[in-house]
């Protein structure tokens, strides 16, 4: 049996968790899900629709919002009760956090960000995991009677595979310190502007923009195309734009229909954040810049003279 930790944010299932269920189904048809916290059990039907043969919903009066170590305690208690061969979760901040706690509680290895998992024996598995945000892959052997692993986002497709709903509720046996760290409040609004991660068009600027002022041109273009502005780390380190706009390994990973890179060289850590863009257009004075090798279309020109021309054409075409 494979146990999958399903993350939900106040009743909304994280889609990467469903990808983890599908990854588990390929290892063993007996996949059981564990979901913790307020509203979790209401999601059992949705989880069963992806092939979980049983859904374990853990609850406790103290678990209203996300509480990482308590969620790990719930998973750990189920591992002891049900003896799965493996425990999987989505490779998201929360998925990795909960499984790290589980692994620490068990003093067991945890293979994060896997793109392939093969169980080879009673306590061995061959895995392939992402390093350098996916720019490099590691083939490794994990020795553990219960494999603990997360799956890298979007490396497995979530496949609907209706299983009859079988819901079991359980009380989470909290230990001291399990609820010390939990979400206590949420600030900031989700309204207004196109969020970078979800934007269909991202217009991004790098060092070649030469300062914060030229970014108003990128805002204009994003405005016409209904997109969001992004940038490279050079730009956020210089304080030209807020970090929320940084694309890359340590910024946001985007997958828009269109990514326009203006004055960005194309370092691996930047590419890690935009390589899933459907179409990439690069505008750069240097025809040999690495970004040109990733692009579908390239313009070899100076952003300061070219972007005004583009804006003019866009405005008259619109």
């Amino acid at each position: 049996m494979i146990l999958v930790y399903v993350d939900h944010d106040r009743g909304e299932i994280d889609p990467i968790s469903l990808q983890a269920i599908s990854a588990a189904t390929a290892l063993d048809p007996d996949v059981q899900a564990v979901i913790v916290g307020h509203g979790g059990k209401d999601l059992a039907g949705e989880i069963a629709a992806f092939g979980a043969t049983a859904v374990h919903a853990g609850h406790h009066a103290d678990l209203l919002d996300f509480t990482p170590r308590a969620h790990a305690r719930a998973v750990h208690s189920l591992i002891e009760k049900t003896s799965p061969r493996a425990v999987l979760a989505g490779g998201t901040p929360r998925g990795n956090e909960v499984l790290s706690h589980v692994a620490a509680l068990m003093d067991a290895p945890f293979a994060s960000e896997c793109v392939s998992i093969v169980l080879t024996g009673a306590d061995s598995a061959d895995i392939v995991r992402a390093r350098w945000a996916g720019n490099m892959l590691e083939e490794a052997v994990v020795l553990a009677p219960v494999l603990i692993a997360s799956v890298q986002a979007h490396s497995f497709a979530a496949v609907a595979a209706a299983a009859p709903l079988s819901l079991a509720e359980f009380d989470v046996p909290l230990a001291e310190g399990d609820v010390l760290v939990r979400v206590e409040d949420r600030v900031g609004s989700s309204a207004g502007g196109v969020g970078l991660a979800e934007a269909k068009v991202v217009v991004s600027g790098g060092r070649g923009m030469d300062g914060p002022d030229a970014f108003s041109m990128l805002e204009d273009i994003a405005g016409v195309l209904g997109g969001a502005v992004g940038c490279s780390r050079v730009v956020t380190s210089a304080g030209w734009r807020p970090h929320a706009e940084q694309v890359g390994q340590t910024g946001t990973k985007v997958a828009p229909d269109l990514y326009i890179a203006c004055g960005i060289s194309g370092a691996t850590q930047h590419i890690a954040g935009c390589k899933s863009s459907k179409t990439l257009i690069a505008i750069n004075t240097d025809a040999q810049a690495p970004i040109m090798g990733f692009a579908d279309y390239v313009v070899v020109d100076n952003v300061h003279t070219f972007l005004p021309l583009l804006i003019e054409k866009l405005k008259s075409a619109n």
């Binding site: 067991a108 290895p109 293979a111 390093r131 996916g134 720019n135 490099m136 892959l137 590691e138 083939e139 490794a140 052997v141 994990v142 020795l143 553990a144 390589k275 990439l280 690069a282 040109m292 090798g293 990733f294 692009a295 579908d296 279309y297 390239v298 313009v299 070899v300 020109d301 003279t305 070219f306 021309l309």
Partner: peptide, 24 residues
Amino acid sequence: RITTKKFTIPEREAKGATSLGSGD
């Protein structure tokens, strides 16, 4: 408990960028 066997670099599809030239 986790032993690396080897590293690989994922193949990047050669896109063969289309040049749009410059200027107007």
